[in-house]
Design a protein around this nucleic acid. Sequence first.
DNA 1: TTGATACTTAACTATTGACCTAAGTATCGT
DNA 2: ACGATACTTAGGTCAATAGTTAAGTATCAA
Lengths: 114, 114
Amino acid sequence: MPKYLDPVFAALSDPTRRQVVERLSQGPASVSELAKPFAMSLPAFVQHLGVLEDSGLIGSRKQGRVRTCYLERAALDRLDGWVAQVQGYWETRLGALTDYAQARHQQNREERES
Amino acid sequence: MPKYLDPVFAALSDPTRRQVVERLSQGPASVSELAKPFAMSLPAFVQHLGVLEDSGLIGSRKQGRVRTCYLERAALDRLDGWVAQVQGYWETRLGALTDYAQARHQQNREERES
DNA sequence: TTGATACTTAACTATTGACCTAAGTATCGT
DNA sequence: ACGATACTTAGGTCAATAGTTAAGTATCAA
């Protein structure tokens, strides 16, 4: 049971933070740019960014007085991996894949024999 | 921004609850069966089940004195939908698909012309 | 160099979440 | 009918989260 998923799920349990992730999936943005849609105080908002960054879902770099945030795809991939696992994703997809591979194998043999 | 995801992510931010979901992905189980791997008190554990059920991730039915819990796949699918969206899933997968289709198309033309 | 911009830090409050123990209810097996 | 089983309800503790205001620092633009 991979424990690193704790902060990822916790981070995404908040609508503000999910909206930030959705926004960042379109490309990087500055802190104030990200904060604009929200009514809360800036410190409160920055705390949300902190939660997201601690979880590994986003990263950030500061140039001059501007901090630019970006999505960290790797974290999202790990999340997707867990969901796929409990969905029985690999069972069905790999099942389909091996079915396909076996059909190909069979087909090749028939072609050789004909 | 679908708000029903709040309780889903919140529910999965706890390792106990994720383990329960993992267990239930193998098939239904009773409360005490689910509780067995955990050190905590039964009331505490049942609270976790309550969180999962409120989130829609699991369902349960009581027959006699036994409550049986099962995974609610629909909730998991909605979760996966959100993740896929911010991953740019459709962009990349559909992109790959059209690439493939175009390659096929090209290949077919070459075969006809040879 | 001065004022505005873009955060950052600090300190505090209110709510929620995760656990506990203790006691209660409903069902099943004998 | 009676004891054991499988939860359920009630009530309380403690730490963590989400928000606030106020004040500070660092950069850019004129």
